[in-house]
Simulated assay, not measured.
Amino acid sequence: MAFYLLAAFACVHNLLNPQNTGPRYGLLAAICALLLHGIWLYDTVVQVPGQNLSMLNVASIISLIISALMTVLVIRFNVLLLMPLVYGFAGLLLAADSLLPGYYSVHLETRPEVLLHIGLGLMSYSLLAIASLLAILLGFLDHRLKKHKLSNLPAMPPLMTLERYLFRLIFVGVVVLTLSISSGLFFLQEMFSPGKAHKALLTIVAWCVYVVLLWGHHRLGWRGRKVIWASVAGSILLTLAYFGSRFVREVLLS
């Protein structure tokens, strides 16, 4: 948690001092945070026998994936404006998981197909969550550009470059989400059973939203607000699908 906060502070410092060309202490702190986070999650989730996939553990796994992917992304091009939020949220989830431990035992070692399905689901959610963050950043920069207020912001990637990366992420995320849904339909007989059908339906609706978005961009040239709202709506639907019932069962009814 300390390394996440240090990385977030370093990102804020670099945003306020764009001329800073010293060592990338923020990147070093972020790498330390990611490594320690992974070790902590392994110790918390992997048990003998079984795995503890409580809601906060799953959320913490997703935050680790998002933080790692965003760290790679910020090295490729400048999305530093998002990094304090990403690292700060990962640190808060880690704190919540430490202070409010939950327990939801599964045995994935006996069902590798379920492990594949869950892994694909977590990766697709992470990719599409990052896409929604980029969409929000794109909307923010577009708004500032129209107001002629970009001069007081740190250096940002060109809007066309940001939009190109956004649609690449959405495309890859949809491909992985398609594999996740397909693996569930093929391997999980209980996918549409009572108590789980809403998760499958919300996930399929989110998939439809993203597919329509990609089609609209490719065939009709959709850009701007349509892309932003569709990306955020798809991310919200996936969040409700993955965490809605778990939140009710593990928090409200516990």
Rank of each mutant, 00 (worst) to 15 (best):
A197I: 14
P154V: 03
L134T: 04
S193Q: 07
K146L: 01
P112T: 00
G119S: 09
L116K: 04
L137V: 04
F186L: 05
G221P: 07
L108G: 12
F187L: 00
L220D: 13
G195L: 03
L237Q: 04
P158A: 00
T110Y: 06
E113A: 11
Y125F: 14
E163Q: 11
T161G: 09
V212L: 12
G139W: 08
A230H: 08
R168L: 14
T161D: 11
G121M: 02
G119T: 05
F171Q: 15
L214D: 04
V211R: 05
A230N: 03
I228S: 07
P194C: 02
T178W: 04
V211S: 11
F171E: 13
W222N: 02
L202D: 05
L220I: 09
L185I: 10
T178Q: 00
D142E: 14
L133M: 06
H148Q: 15
L150Y: 08
G221I: 03
I136R: 01
W222F: 04
S180H: 10
P154F: 01
S180P: 06
K199V: 03
Y104N: 15
K199R: 05
L141H: 10
F243V: 00
F171R: 14
L115C: 02
V232W: 08
F167Q: 04
H117I: 04
Y125E: 03
R144V: 06
G234V: 01
I204Q: 11
L150K: 04
L115I: 01
